[in-house]
């Protein structure tokens, strides 16, 4: 069973039901992701999708950066690529979407909350496909992005975890998600790392 962060007295996601995890981060996101992504086990059976806002023009070194820090395989998908287990980063300048046939979709639609990729776009499309099998995690950021997406995950029966705004480098984004999505868990990065390790671990058959 999952070790719940005691202080919050929370319901935890039923591990076998979790089919995918999506994570959104903005300002302070590299550090926050560095605290949580390495806990995804190398043999995870599920995909972990990540959107992080980067300043425009900064080309993506994310895969390189996180491949060296993570045990699980880290990739940037291509259009219509079949979704497999491991960590997948959204590419700069495109919204990343999940299609109902479990492939990746892309769009260059207008930025959402000034961001492309937008966390809302990923979360909403993933909620549509994975429903209650989805866990969404909103981390530090100075944006409103992610709140509507987290709400969509809740509405589809999924599970939402938000970094405690008090402990986040930038509190706006997690606070917005807390307000809009009434997440099941609001907690610190080390606790989120443990939760992520548990939901992404290999399943005993």
């Amino acid at each position: 069973m999952l070790s719940a962060p005691k202080s919050y007295g929370v319901v935890v996601p039923r591990v076998p039901a979790v089919k995918a995890v999506c994570i959104g981060a903005s300002a302070g996101g590299i550090e926050a992701l560095t605290a949580v992504l390495p806990s995804v086990p190398a043999d995870t059976p599920i995909p972990v999708f990540v959107v992080i806002h980067l300043p425009p023009g900064r080309s993506s070194r994310l895969v390189e950066l996180f491949a060296s820090r993570c045990q699980a395989r880290v990739r940037e998908p291509l259009d219509k690529e079949p979704i497999g287990p491991g960590i997948w980063f959204a590419a700069p300048d495109y919204h990343l979407l999940v299609e109902s046939d479990f492939t990746f979709g892309f769009s260059v639609d207008e930025p959402v909350h000034f961001s492309r990729p937008a966390i809302d776009m990923l979360f909403t499309s993933a909620a549509d496909v994975y429903g209650e099998g989805l866990v969404g995690i909103v981390l530090t950021g100075a944006s409103q992005d992610g709140a509507d997406g987290a709400r969509a995950i809740r509405d589809a029966g999924g599970f939402v975890i938000v970094q405690d705004p008090m402990t986040a480098l930038a509190s706006t984004m997690p606070a917005a998600a807390v307000g809009r999505a009434t997440p099941q868990i609001v907690t610190t990065l080390p606790e989120i790392a443990l939760l992520l390790r548990d939901v992404a671990r290999a399943r005993e058959s």
Binding site: H95, L97, V98, E99, S100, G105, S107, D109, S125
Partner: peptide, 9 residues
């Protein structure tokens, strides 16, 4: 067309 983005638009 791809449903995910069409739905959104």
């Amino acid at each position: 067309y791809s449903m995910a983005s069409l739905k959104r638009r």
